[in-house]
């Protein structure tokens, strides 16, 4: 996935944007920003108080002559110590409570949520609606509770939508989830925030918030696309499923072998056996990438979660790369 078309996303920085924040595009944003500002003002107050006192003392009690005798002054004051222990304790108690409340509301999705399955692997996102329609952009209807049920097939990733103020890690070997209710139509950034290797900073996509009518139309369009010409679909998958990160089309060696002229070529494997590339082999290599390793390459290809139709489309596409 290359850089997003930035012009399309400018909208995000229009309405509601200020020095600190992006647009407030989900149900959490408003309350979140309020809490953030509360801590910000509180800390600023204390910080200014400390620095001002420091500067005042530096000026007022500066050493006026070399070798001044050590002045005599108080060296302890229990009342003062208790005061400046107790007041911060009470304050941070409040802070904890605010944070905890907000956290719990983010962690517990409402029962009526619309569940979207999120699959992540280096370095692509894949979103699947309840009807089984896949896309590499997250389409969501405005005003509806959305729950993302997320899994990863290789390393830890993290789904982060700044405009929604939501983030959660996707840990391989378990499901994690986030939920939100989009409140503003538009396109917003979606980042991966857990370091995941070479193209970590390119593992970005966008969230498109539509009203429910448009959303339905989008789903239909995606369904149609999936049943079109397999070569075209394969070319699309080559980009959207992350194949392009390792396999080039121009014969240059990447992390994996190039696809140029691959079909019909003879391959030598790490165990010195040889084989002519056919559909059988391609299918196997896509589904079980580590079963036969081409000589000179490591076992780095992730196990994908492609559907049969998608594998077919990719094979058809590979056949056309000459």
């Amino acid at each position: 996935m290359s850089m997003l078309p930035l012009a399309m996303i400018q909208q995000e920085y229009g309405e509601g944007k200020n020095f600190w924040f992006h647009a407030q595009a989900s149900n959490f944003a408003h309350e979140y920003d309020w809490v953030f500002y509360f801590v910000l003002y509180l800390s600023t107050f204390f910080f200014i108080a400390i620095v001002a006192t420091m500067i005042l003392f530096l000026v007022k009690y500066r050493r006026r002559e070399e070798g001044e005798a050590a002045p005599h002054g108080p060296s302890h004051n229990t009342v003062l110590e208790i005061t400046w222990t107790v007041i911060p304790t009470i304050l941070v108690g409040f802070l904890f409570w605010f944070g905890f409340k907000g956290y719990m509301s983010q962690r517990v999705p409402p029962r009526d949520s619309y569940e979207i399955r999120v699959r992540s692997q280096r370095w692509v996102w894949s979103f699947e609606s309840p009807g089984g329609i896949q896309s590499d952009v997250l389409y969501v209807p405005k005003g509806k509770n959305i729950k993302l049920r997320m899994s990863s097939s290789d390393v830890i990733h993290s789904l982060y939508i700044p405009a929604f103020r939501v983030k959660y890690d996707i840990v391989p070997g378990r499901y994690t989830q986030v939920w939100f209710r989009p409140t503003m139509k538009g396109e917003f950034h979606l980042f991966c925030t857990e370091y995941c290797g070479k193209d970590h900073s390119r593992m970005t996509t966008k969230v498109v918030v539509m009203d429910s009518f448009e959303f339905q139309g989008q789903l239909d369009k995606l369904a149609e696309e999936a049943t079109s010409d397999p070569v075209e679909y394969g070319a699309k998958l080559y980009k959207s499923k992350g194949c392009s990160a390792c396999h080039t089309l121009d014969g240059v060696k990447g992390q994996g072998p190039s696809w140029k002229g691959l079909f019909g070529m003879e391959r030598e494997f790490s165990n010195a056996k040889k084989l002519v590339v056919d559909e059988q082999y391609l299918r196997e290599s896509i589904i079980q990438p580590h079963k036969k390793l081409v000589k000179g390459y490591g076992a780095v290809m992730p196990v994908t979660q492609l559907k049969d139709r998608q594998v077919d489309a990719l094979i058809e596409y590979i056949k056309t790369v000459k």
Binding site: R283, E284, I287, Q288, V303, Q305, L306, K307, D308, V311
Partner: peptide
Amino acid sequence: PKKSGEPGQHQKQ
């Protein structure tokens, strides 16, 4: 050959 044709050895669809 049939075995490898099954979707996902580790991650079943």
